[in-house]
Design a protein around this nucleic acid. Sequence first.
DNA 1: GCCACTTAGTTCAAGTTTCAAGGACGTAGC
DNA 2: GCTACGTCCTTGAAACTTGAACTAAGTGGC
Lengths: 169, 169
Amino acid sequence: MNTASASAEEPQWLTAEEQRVWRSYLHATTLLEDHLDRQLQRDAGMPHIYYGLLVSLVEAPKRRLRMTELAMKSKITRSRLSHAIARLEKNGWVRREDCPSDKRGQFAVLTDAGLEVLRRTAPGHVTAVRQALFDRLSPEQQKSLGEIMQIVAEGLQPNEAGADLPWLR
Amino acid sequence: MNTASASAEEPQWLTAEEQRVWRSYLHATTLLEDHLDRQLQRDAGMPHIYYGLLVSLVEAPKRRLRMTELAMKSKITRSRLSHAIARLEKNGWVRREDCPSDKRGQFAVLTDAGLEVLRRTAPGHVTAVRQALFDRLSPEQQKSLGEIMQIVAEGLQPNEAGADLPWLR
DNA sequence: GCCACTTAGTTCAAGTTTCAAGGACGTAGC
DNA sequence: GCTACGTCCTTGAAACTTGAACTAAGTGGC
C-alpha cells in the first residue's frame, strides 16, 4: 500500500495525534450540542437552533429579518427555516409579514411573546454555556478557540449565492 | 424547575469577546457537521453519525460491540442507536447477534459488506476532514484544539466524577 | 422460592430535518 | 408585450431523532 505520487488513490490518513484531536472534537461537540438542546428544550420548550433564530431576530432592526437572511445567519437551509418558523409561529413567538418591496419576500418578526420567552430563558442558557465551556477554559484557550473556529467557519462558508444548492466541495 | 438558581439574580452575560468566540464556535461546528453529513450521505449513503458507528465497530474486537457500549462510545441514546442499527442492518452493513452470557443483550456486528463500505469511503472522508480542519490549522492550533475539546468533553461526560472512563464493569 | 428493583434493548408517537418539487414574483432581453 | 431564467419561499414525503412507555431478563433481599 504505497503507491508513490499521492493522488486520489492513497489517502493521507490521520496520524495518531490527529485522530485523538478529531475524536475529542466529535465527542465534545456532540455532547455540548446535546446538552444545550436538552437544556433549552426543558427550559424554553424548543431546541437550540430554534432558540438561535429568536436571538437573531431580537438583535435585528425592528426585530425582523428576511427569511433568506435569517437562514444564512443561522447556517441552515431555507427549507428548514420554513418549517422552523412555522413551528415558532404556532407557538406565537414569531409572526410572518409580507415584504412590501418584494412580493416574494417574507419577514420573520419576533413577537412580544417571543421576546418574553427570550428574556425568561436567556439567563439560564448563558449560564449553561458558561458552565460547559467558558468556565473550563483559560483566557488563552478561549482566544485560541475563537481563532480556530473562525478559520474553520471561513473555510466552509458557502461564500457565494445559492443558499441551498449542493455546494461542491 | 431551575428558574431560580443563579440565573434570575445574576445574569452573567457573555462579554463581547466571549460572544464572538461562541458564535464562531456555533458557526464552525454547524457548518462542519453539515459539510461532513452531506459528504458522507453522497459518497457512502449514510449520515455522519451512522458512519461513526461503523468505525467504532471495525475497531472493536471481532468487529462487534454491545448496544449499550456502542451507544456510549458514540454519545447517543440507546433509542437512537436501535433505530440506526435497524437501518444499517437493512443495508446489510451490520447484523445483530444475541449475547450468550446475558440474554437481554445484543451485539451489533459489522458485516463484510459493512467493512467494504468503510474501505471504499474512508479515504474520501479523511480527505474531507483534512481539508476542512487540519489543513487549515497550525500544529499549535491542532494541539490546542485537542486540549480544549478534551476538557469540554470531560466536563459533559454523563458519567460524572472526571474519571477517564476506564470502563469498569 | 418470591418479591421488588435495576438493566438491556425495543417500540410508539410526536417532532425535526432533508430532498426534490413547485408556485409566485423579479429581471433582463427582445 | 412576451419569453426565459433566476430568486424567494413553501410544501410534502421520507428519513431521522427524541422521550416515554414497554418487554424481557438479571440482581439482591428475605
